[in-house]
Simulated assay, not measured.
Amino acid sequence: MKRLPVLLTALLLGAASAAQASDFTRLVPRAANDDTIVVKLPNQASMTLFVKNKAQLRELRQYKLDSLLVLLDGYITQAEAAGKNSKSDQVTMEFYPAKEQPGKQVPEQIRITVRNQGPGSKTKSADHVDVTLGRVFGVTVDENTDGGSDHVSVRVGTSTVSDSLRNAQRQARHEEYANRPVHSNFNIDLGVNALIKKGADANGVTPDLRPLASRYISLNWHYDIRLGDKGSVLFLRTGPELAFNNYMLDGNYQFANTNGVTTLVKPDAGRNLEKSKLSVTSVNLPLMPMLNFQDKKGHEAFRIGAGGFVGYRLGSHTKVKYEQEGSTKKDKDRGSYNLEDFQYGVQGLVGIRRFDLFVKYNLNDTFKSNRGPQAQTLSFGISLLN
């Protein structure tokens, strides 16, 4: 590995000089929309540049090769030293020359990966260094210690090597996330409300809802806490939820307070209500055990959970919409409407990938006893995960 920085410097310096002479440079067609530029040097060495288009090649002009190579030589030496002292077969180090040398035309980030394959490896023993300069281009140096030839390849833009490195880093992030004792996420519940176990109010009217118009929306900041050792699929889900329940009445009724009691009444004679709803905002806290299974790549694959929740009403109001004398009128009235401030219930979910089907059932009545219609709330729908 001692020859690698010297090899890199020698080849690229020679390439920089030879690239100015057209006798040593040729353009070879590669895959669709790709070009391969092969720089042949007098000492039989070569440098290969893989480019997607001419614009990527022009990006190299912003760097002075001689200064860049001196910079790389020092960084590769540090990475090699770290590799020798590491028990791992691969060591990756990141450097930030733009911060170290402000004002100079140098890459913002340089990532160097050193791979060592020992004598016991089934493959041919080799040392490998991969250098990535920001998102612009990368340099790969292979030194075959079994008498093979040395070569340098410079890749501009996306390459097979950089893609594999990114995939490996992405996989490592997934595994690191999967092994965390606490997972945090944000999701949105979109669904509808229904009233069950309904009973008549003081006027003998039973509330009926317009199903699709009685919407349920919840913004959820969840924490999934692993129960058990690393690799356990059992979690406890909790975290604050901001929920919006809308109850859209059917049958040309509206909510009204009469002598401290909430009832359903008809509007003034001859008036037809386009919309009549009761909106309730509450904050909830779930406590739900959940099984969360992951695929081989560490992605969440399947979830199932059941538990309970508690909540508190933050605010509520009614809103009616109607036509009067050729114009649209909207009346909005804030109030408690004898709704229960505290609520509790059970809930469950079944999920695949980034989608969950959820259901929530309030065990306590929606309105206070003998102060409003008898009913309990059932909400169900789909969750969109972050």
Results as ranks from 00 to 15, higher is better:
residue 236 L to M: 04
residue 219 L to N: 04
residue 363 L to K: 08
residue 379 S to E: 09
residue 273 L to C: 11
residue 345 G to Q: 00
residue 164 S to M: 14
residue 132 T to W: 02
residue 161 V to F: 04
residue 313 R to S: 09
residue 208 D to L: 12
residue 256 A to D: 15
residue 378 L to T: 06
residue 364 N to H: 15
residue 340 E to F: 13
residue 281 T to P: 08
residue 22 S to T: 08
residue 16 A to W: 02
residue 180 R to V: 07
residue 17 S to G: 05
residue 181 P to Y: 04
residue 352 I to Q: 07
residue 380 F to N: 06
residue 60 L to D: 01
residue 156 V to W: 00
residue 205 V to R: 04
residue 111 R to K: 03
residue 309 F to H: 13
residue 270 G to W: 15
residue 115 R to C: 09
residue 295 D to Y: 05
residue 195 L to D: 06
residue 293 F to P: 00
residue 372 G to V: 12
residue 30 R to F: 08
residue 170 R to E: 10
residue 63 Y to G: 00
residue 155 R to H: 11
residue 57 L to I: 01
residue 36 T to C: 10
residue 296 K to G: 05
residue 34 D to Y: 10
residue 228 G to C: 03
residue 331 D to L: 12
residue 222 H to G: 07
residue 332 K to T: 12
residue 249 L to I: 01
residue 44 Q to Y: 11
residue 107 P to E: 02
residue 313 R to C: 05
residue 93 M to F: 03
residue 181 P to H: 05
residue 21 A to L: 10
residue 60 L to Y: 05
residue 187 N to G: 09
residue 357 L to E: 09
residue 188 I to F: 15
residue 311 G to A: 11
residue 106 V to L: 13
residue 257 N to H: 10
residue 238 T to N: 05
residue 65 L to Y: 05
residue 282 S to N: 11
residue 236 L to E: 03
residue 148 G to H: 02
residue 171 Q to T: 05
residue 179 N to T: 09
residue 133 L to Q: 00
residue 122 K to C: 13
residue 207 P to A: 07
residue 88 S to M: 14
residue 52 K to F: 05
residue 210 R to L: 14
residue 221 W to R: 06
residue 236 L to C: 00
residue 249 L to Y: 02
residue 96 Y to L: 00
residue 104 K to G: 01
residue 310 V to P: 06
residue 18 A to W: 05
residue 166 R to D: 09
residue 353 R to E: 12
residue 349 L to S: 06
residue 374 Q to F: 05
residue 68 L to C: 04
residue 107 P to C: 03
residue 340 E to C: 13
residue 199 G to Q: 11
residue 313 R to K: 14
residue 360 K to V: 05
residue 12 L to P: 01
residue 63 Y to W: 09
residue 14 G to C: 00
residue 81 A to I: 03
residue 308 G to E: 07
residue 15 A to E: 04
residue 193 N to Y: 03
residue 177 Y to H: 12
residue 239 G to Y: 04
residue 348 G to P: 04
residue 232 S to R: 14
residue 50 F to E: 13
residue 273 L to M: 13
residue 254 Q to V: 02
residue 283 V to L: 15
residue 37 I to T: 15
residue 177 Y to G: 08
residue 268 D to S: 14
residue 363 L to P: 07
residue 63 Y to R: 02
residue 163 D to L: 15
residue 182 V to A: 09
residue 294 Q to S: 06
residue 168 A to G: 02
residue 137 F to D: 07
residue 161 V to R: 04
residue 187 N to T: 11
residue 209 L to T: 11
residue 143 E to S: 12
residue 342 F to R: 14
residue 291 L to Q: 08
residue 106 V to G: 01
residue 257 N to Q: 14
residue 309 F to M: 12
residue 184 S to C: 08
residue 331 D to S: 11
residue 31 A to L: 12
residue 246 N to T: 14
residue 350 V to G: 00
residue 293 F to Q: 03
residue 269 A to R: 13
residue 254 Q to W: 08
residue 193 N to D: 08
residue 33 N to G: 13
residue 41 L to E: 06
residue 162 S to F: 01
residue 286 P to H: 11
residue 376 Q to W: 09
residue 325 E to P: 03
residue 83 G to Y: 02
residue 272 N to I: 12
